[in-house]
């Protein structure tokens, strides 16, 4: 994972609450065995009409949403399944951050491990961002704030280790492999784990 310190973009908004992982990537596409190229399937059944044309009612199909890499989504984004295909699809679609007042646990964990900034902000700031699509934001990972065009700031709290990994591009599997002595000791001292 490449280090991520700062992200600038206009916002695109999906105000619906409880956008679940089946909406982010429908299950029938999960027969893939790679993590690449899922962007074309992202929000598939919402984004396209039955004839395959773009659905004009899907907010991210609007011209002003093109090129936006920050998504402001309704509360409880990413609820449902544990499929990591959801953040893979969002990243391949071009998104780099999701701002929300509440994000489902497994989705958030998966997103951060892939460098998708799944950030929880307070409800009033979230409401304001939902009401102001297209606003230019800067996300500062080290400082844990989102900067508004007028210099105002919206804070967010990242789990310290996730923040460290984002800032330094830390490989979490590498970190865990580094614990192998402690793991071996645990296995030796816990007969049920032997």
């Amino acid at each position: 994972m490449k280090p991520i310190t700062r992200l600038h973009s206009r916002t695109a908004v999906l105000p619906d609450e409880n956008i679940d992982t089946d909406r982010i990537i429908p299950a029938r596409f999960l027969t893939t065995t790679t993590r690449n190229g899922l962007g074309k399937l992202c929000f598939h059944d919402w984004r396209y009409l039955p004839d395959g044309a773009d659905n004009p009612a899907f907010p991210l199909n609007r011209t002003e949403a093109h090129g936006c890499s920050i998504l402001v989504a309704g509360r409880n984004f990413g609820c449902g399944s544990s499929r990591e295909h959801a953040p893979w699809a969002l990243l391949d679609f071009g998104l780099r951050a999701v701002l929300c007042s509440e994000i489902a646990d497994i989705f958030r964990s998966n997103a951060l491990k892939n460098g998708l900034l799944a950030l929880v902000i307070d409800a009033p700031a979230h409401r304001w961002l939902l009401d102001h699509p297209g606003i230019e934001l800067a996300i500062d990972v080290a400082g844990e704030f989102v900067e508004l065009p007028d210099g105002g700031r919206i804070g967010f709290a990242l789990e310290p280790f996730a923040r460290h990994c984002l800032l330094h591009g830390v490989d979490q599997l590498g970190f865990l492999l580094g614990q192998s002595q402690a793991i071996a000791h645990y296995e030796q001292t816990h007969p049920e784990a032997a």
């Binding site: 544990s82 990591e84 964990s109 998966n110 599997l173 865990l176 614990q179 192998s180 793991i183 296995e187």
Partner: peptide, 22 residues
């Protein structure tokens, strides 16, 4: 509990996960 595919890799390789106490 359910985990993502990156964590499936973590468990395959180390039998462990990095977790904050819920």
């Amino acid at each position: 509990f359910g985990i993502g595919t990156t964590e499936v890799g973590h468990v395959l390789a180390t039998q462990c996960l990095l977790q904050r106490k819920p």
